[in-house]
Design a protein around this nucleic acid. Structure first.
Lengths: 207, 207
DNA sequence: GAAAAACATGAATAGTGATTCATAATTCAT
DNA sequence: ATGAATTATGAATCACTATTCATGTTTTTC
């Protein structure tokens, strides 16, 4: 009966039923994150993943039904971790503009310490478009709501929450990429302050 | 601009020396844009590209030395076209903030009419990281300069031009993706106005 | 108008790597 | 302890596709 916890997908690689199996599955997932994050989806062979995990090639298929499946799982994991980290950071904040700042800081901090996961999400656009869109839609929807409520409450200027949500996500993403992909070394706190200043007050000079 | 015409790279597929060859090369490049843009780099086989172009498989290698090479060429082409379109749109503008608006509009318009090229640039991050970084660095540098000069001249509030350039590129990119990848149908002009309002005046409510 | 140069063909090659499977080892339940 | 379930192995399979090449066609050159 029970059978909760089962993602209800297809006949995917079955869940381990032993501590030993659980450990092996984790090892493979961790190795996949490392190897795919480093070499990209196509360069990362099942062989290189299992080698990194220290198991035989066939073992992979005990826990995952395909190369794509392990990838999707990583994308979903990234989404969960990120949402957790951000909501943790902005949880009790009353001031929307401050929440904006702290959310950005949490995002950039997380990304800096998980560059592999970051690359994986980017690549998901091509490897697993559904997972990619789900990832962004989930974020965008939460963001949109927050902005809409803040505008409603008069905490920020009114304006289309949808487009704003995408624009602000775009800033976060670009700055994450700036450091991860382009290797910029400006300290996160500085980047956050500069970007937050732009987000809050815009470019226009005031008299 | 000028340029010699010979990219000076390695022993790449040679340039055509005949009108006929020129036409074939163009056909292949166009087919590659269509097929790779639609199916992604890895799904797009040389066979599918040459079929689309209406030539034999071997013909591909008369003009390109590898699958990667045709890809790089497309990325470079996208960069050139985009820079041209944007500088065309913002060329004589005195007001920096207006230039910002028109640049964004030009970008979104271009992207909407060339969704394949857009996807290709995104994918370049994994297929040809050097081309990808070159593409963004070139944009970022131009943007940075524009912002720095505007700040210098007192046309906008002072602030780190580098981070701002990346943030603003991020907005453009996210909004482009919003329409191309996520199929949003909000008219470009509306999106531009909302985003420009945010860029210029920020989120903060003023008394 | 003939040899040369350029272009085109598509079947063959050749390397790759995801997935399967027969077999073996380990762990669990009783 | 012992049969059943679970987990692990890694060599073999199998499909796929980038690239090459020997040959044929078209265009240019003189």
């Amino acid at each position: 009966m029970a059978e909760t916890g089962t993602p209800a997908k297809d006949q995917t690689g079955r869940e381990p039923k032993t501590a030993r199996g659980e450990a092996t599955r984790r090892a493979i997932l961790g190795a996949a994150e490392k190897v795919i994050g480093r070499q990209g989806f196509n360069e990362a062979s099942i062989g290189s993943i299992t080698r990194e995990a220290g198991v035989a090639q066939g073992t992979f298929y005990i826990y995952f039904s395909s190369k794509d499946e392990v990838f999707s799982e990583l994308v979903a994991e990234m989404g969960r971790m990120l949402r957790h980290v951000i909501s943790e950071a902005t949880g009790g904040m009353a001031d929307r503009l401050e929440a904006e700042r702290e959310g950005l800081r949490a995002f950039l901090t997380f990304v800096a310490s998980h560059p592999e996961l970051y690359r994986i999400v980017q690549e998901a656009q091509f490897v697993d478009p559904d997972a990619y869109r789900a990832y962004f839609r989930t974020f965008a929807e939460g963001y949109r709501q927050g902005l809409a409520e803040a505008a409603e409450a008069g905490a920020i200027r009114p304006g289309d929450a949808d487009v704003r949500a995408w624009a602000l996500m775009g800033i976060a993403r670009a700055l994450g990429e700036y450091s991860v992909v382009f290797g910029d070394t400006t300290p996160i706190d500085e980047v956050v302050d500069i970007a937050h200043d732009l987000i809050v007050d815009g470019l226009r000079k005031r008299s």
